[in-house]
Nucleic acid binder design. Structure first.
Length: 223
DNA sequence: GTTGAGCGTT
């Protein structure tokens, strides 16, 4: 939904989808529309958002009516600073262009040969990123040289919920140990077993009658 | 409030 008057995929059969990456999490289709519309006729813009959170994922799809416009947009808007972030525009793998890629094995879309060796990394399923797409943190030191300045340790370093020493200590030797000990110590089963055994000689298969007999005489003479 | 690799809704 891009508020373009359509709910689903518009005439993708006659439109070229562009993938816009590196967008800010607050950039919406409305913000990109003017930018892309400037270079050509934009059919529709769609920015996938989290079904749960509803926030932009940082990328969107822009559909152009003509390929030349899309190509131009890719060339002109690719690297355009939007909201303080350089967005990357490239042909998406969906729609007419995707057909070529699937059939003719990456036809390069005859437009992306701008020297940008954007090696298409093996995209993982989208389900992952739906859960925590930033958890991957795939040391992508290489690839884009414009935003590389931030590739430091974006890892999900729990900002506030860090393991506190107190927590760690308590967790280390707390309920777990007590519980365990308690179970093994005061377990009704154990008692039952114990009692049962008490009635029976320690050795269930070795009553050692001989020993008894042998001790018997000794004990008798002992006193 | 944050985050940052990637390819989408009917």
């Amino acid at each position: 939904m891009s508020h373009f008057g359509r709910s689903g995929p518009p005439e993708i059969k006659d439109s070229f989808s562009l993938l816009v990456l590196n967008l800010t999490f607050r950039t919406s289709a409305d913000d990109l529309y003017p930018l892309f519309d400037r270079y050509g006729e934009v059919v529709d813009i769609y920015i996938p958002r989290n079904r749960r959170t509803g926030d932009s994922r940082g990328f969107g799809f822009v559909r152009y009516k003509y390929f030349e416009d899309a190509q131009k947009a890719v060339d002109r808007l690719d690297g355009k600073m939007v909201d303080g972030r350089a967005m990357m525009v490239q042909f998406a793998k969906y729609g007419p262009n995707a057909e070529k890629i699937h059939k003719g094995r990456i036809v390069e879309v005859m437009g992306r040969s701008r020297g940008r060796s954007r090696s298409r990394s093996p995209r993982r399923r989208d389900d992952d990123r739906d859960r925590d797409y930033r958890r991957r943190s795939r040391s992508r030191s290489r690839g884009r040289d414009r935003d590389r300045g931030r590739g430091r340790d974006y890892r999900r370093r729990s900002p506030s919920r860090s393991r506190s020493p107190d927590d760690y200590k308590r967790r280390s030797r707390s309920p777990d140990d007590y519980k365990r000990r308690s179970k093994y110590s005061v377990s009704p089963d154990r008692r039952s077993l114990s009692r049962s055994r008490s009635r029976s000689p320690p050795r269930k298969a070795s009553p050692s009658p001989a020993r008894d007999a042998s001790r018997s005489p000794r004990r008798s003479t002992s006193p």
